[in-house]
């Protein structure tokens, strides 16, 4: 029994979610191999070889895999999967994109966003926006699984010394091509792995007012998130959205500012260790999950909070 973990990376650096996914693989047991598919990704492969508990790193370095296009990487992964009992990928937008394609090529069902491993064939996963937890058992010969990174503590990124081996696949399927991308640049920590997250909602009233959150975030070394209402109103970029349809976060501290706390938003943050809600409506549902609530006008609270920190 061996598990193949698909590395998340940007061709230059290994993403933290890979370490959480390896942790899920350790809970399953057996040998752990990591696949790095990309273009000029030797540095990523070297970083993957240092992950504690990984015994082999497979590298598929090809222009066709540079942007992890599903049409190109899915056949590569499905081909390699034959030798494994489990194939795991982080439930990032990349993992969500290629992994179901891998599962269908292997003619097996995929198990999405597991939050716990009960045994090598039994897993827990949230359904209905996190309002129910299903325990599912798979009898598939190859178990294809995406992992909710925030549900597993990362393994150490240092200390391992896995062998690196080159592999190749079928390359470019010729049905899709990369045109371009717009990556939001930020000096703040990445939202899904930040220790502190400060999120703004409709109550922020304008995109300009998000400056108040940025100032506070910089004091705390926090990432800034947003509710769907704030994103739809154009206050914040959509990759900042926290919720069922956006990112799932579980930081040590989550500060919800001007956010009412709809089911869809709670699905993305209710596993945070400590939740603070700042809202002027004492009836807002967010107070039902908040450890510390402050009923007050956020425009008075935020500058004062910044001053006191």
């Amino acid at each position: 029994m061996a598990t193949l973990v698909i590395a998340e990376h940007d061709n230059a650096a290994l993403a933290a979610a890979t370490l959480n996914t390896v942790a899920a693989a350790q809970a399953i047991g057996g040998d752990i191999h990591v696949l790095v598919a990309g273009q000029q990704c030797a540095a990523v492969a070297e970083a993957a070889a240092k992950i504690a508990g990984v015994s082999k790193v497979l590298v598929a370095d090809d222009a066709a895999y540079g942007h992890l296009l599903a049409e190109n990487v899915a056949p590569l992964i499905a081909g390699l999967a034959q030798g494994y009992s489990h194939v795991l990928a982080p439930a990032s937008t990349n993992g969500k994109n290629y992994l179901p394609r891998v599962a269908a090529l292997l003619d097996v069902e995929q198990i999405s966003e597991i939050v716990a491993v009960e045994s090598p064939d039994t897993f827990k996963r949230p359904i209905y926006a996190g309002n129910a937890i299903a325990t599912v058992q798979s009898s598939a010969p190859i178990k294809v699984i995406s992992v909710r990174a925030t549900a597993f503590d990362p393994v150490a990124g240092e200390g391992g010394s896995a062998a690196i081996e080159g592999v190749s696949g079928t390359g470019d399927a010729g049905t899709s091509s990369f045109v371009g991308e717009e990556i939001a640049r930020s000096d703040r920590p990445e939202l899904t792995s930040a220790r502190v997250v400060i999120s703004g909602g409709r109550g922020m009233q304008s995109g300009d007012n998000f400056k108040l959150l940025y100032a506070l975030a910089d004091k705390l070394g926090a990432a800034v998130g947003a509710s769907r209402a704030a994103v739809d109103a154009g206050f914040a970029a959509n990759d900042m959205q926290v919720g069922q349809t956006g990112k799932i976060v579980a930081p040590d501290l989550y500060v919800a500012v001007g956010i009412s706390g709809a089911i869809q938003h709670l699905a993305g943050m209710k596993d945070s260790k400590v939740i603070v809600a700042i809202n002027k409506d004492p009836e807002a549902p967010i107070f039902q999950v908040a450890d510390y609530g402050l009923v007050a006008d956020l425009f008075e609270v935020l500058p004062e909070l910044e001053k006191q920190l």
């Binding site: 942007h67 296009l69 990032s92 937008t93 990349n94 899709s176 091509s177 990369f178 045109v179 371009g180 991308e181 717009e182 990556i183 939001a184 899904t192 970029a237 990759d239 990112k247």
Partner: peptide, 8 residues
Amino acid sequence: IDGGLQTL
């Protein structure tokens, strides 16, 4: 996508 937008 996670970091922003991608066009294919």
